[in-house]
Write a protein that binds this DNA or RNA. Structure first.
Lengths: 224, 224
DNA sequence: GACACCTTTGACGCATTCTTGATGGCCGAC
DNA sequence: GTCGGCCATCAAGAATGCGTCAAAGGTGTC
């Protein structure tokens, strides 16, 4: 299910959005201010963020920057201000769309559809092959030599980040941030522990990995 | 260069858009109606389409459908009609954004940036060629004569600073500052050590570098 | 409450990398 | 011609980071 994080300090709007989005099959979480939004995003890992710019504690562009530091999920900005300068600042900070209040809920839903459609169409490769194993990120299933392989929640999260960036080096800080949250940036021993488990479950020779590679001092890389 | 196709039947608007987009470094083609737009898109293969919905010959959604049949380039719709139903129809037909006229040109440019940023995020290739080696800063990969070359963290940091300033002289103090931090401004021996390693790994003849050049007493320079 | 499973921590051997020192070549200054 | 500064190269010890094993909390289930 597509996960959406709604950030708005006005309870009525947040509630209305939650109801409408839920009714259309999205999984919704809400946050009332910038700090909680960043924390919720780290825990919830949304596929899209609906962000009200008029938050009490932080500037909207700061929240965008905080999100863009580790996620590329679409950000749809809501704002009462229609000034072009505001829109430009938000879009250039990393937002994907900008809607001025009052907004039509149908239009907002259409923009959400447009944003998620693009996000999932481009880089979604639901099934990945790692040696003799087949990983399906959509159904959360791993089959290896005909046998089903069980992965824990943490193992899935870690594997998913790597698989969604095929061939690309993913920094250890980024991995820790996206799997364990912002407060675990230094716990590289977690990475060692879980990478070893993934290799044991997926690689033909766990001691000599071919697809889940270590880049010492920097991070890890999935090579197709 | 990023290519944009502008589709508008009003010559003034088409001209204004062409001038503004060209001034910002885009390559622009224009088409005055739907039929020519589809033909121009096939020939021009744009990275983004700015599409006016009020075309004389075809309905806007038809044009969108015609484009979506074979390209996933972002489509940014312009329209004089602000009705939500229109917007929803266009977005669900495959458009990525919808701007109502009259529009602010700065905002349009920001939306163009946002759309192209997302599109190019996946396939952006900031690859640099050093002799027979190919350096990809995004994926942190170096391939030389078909073989993969491994660089350490420090080597990457040093190389990245040089590659991001192609042709430019980078002072030794700046290099030391950016790679090792503010307390190493005088340790020029580090630079010698690591420049030698980089040349050994990248240059055809490490003793006679062609791309990673020393400027005695000043710093180093990457020549493409 | 007992059990199984997952997560979190700690410790150790090992390989690689970083740091440091020493040597020799090139070039301009004197 | 000699000297001193700057650079390239080589060769160590020191430090860091990784993989692995093992075991202590935590959590949910039966």
């Amino acid at each position: 299910m597509i996960k959406i994080l709604v950030v708005d300090d006005e309870p009525q709007i947040a509630r209305a959005l939650r109801i409408n989005l839920s009714a259309h099959g999205y999984e919704v979480a809400t946050a009332p201010d910038g700090a909680q939004a960043l924390r919720a995003a780290a825990a919830f890992v949304p596929d899209l963020v609906v962000l009200d710019l008029g938050l009490p504690d932080m500037d909207g562009t700061e929240v965008i920057a905080g999100l863009r530091g580790w996620t590329s999920a679409p950000i749809l900005v809501l704002s009462g201000r229609a000034a072009s300068a505001e829109k430009i600042a938000a879009l250039d900070a990393g937002a994907d769309d900008y809607v001025t209040k009052p907004f039509d809920i149908g239009e907002l839903l259409a923009r959400v559809r447009a944003a998620t459609r693009r996000g999932s169409a481009g880089s979604d490769a639901p099934v990945t092959v790692i040696g003799s194993a087949t990983v399906d990120l959509a159904t959360r299933e791993v089959v290896r030599d005909g046998e089903e392989v069980r992965l824990t929640k943490t193992e899935w999260q870690l594997l998913e980040v790597l698989l969604r960036n095929p061939g690309k080096l993913v920094g250890q800080r980024e991995l820790l941030h996206r799997v364990w949250g912002p407060n675990y940036d230094r716990e590289t021993n977690y990475l060692r522990q879980y990478m070893a488990q993934l290799r044991r479950k997926l690689e033909a020779d766990p001691a000599r990995p071919v697809h889940l590679l270590t880049e010492p001092g920097m991070g890890y890389r999935f090579r197709p």
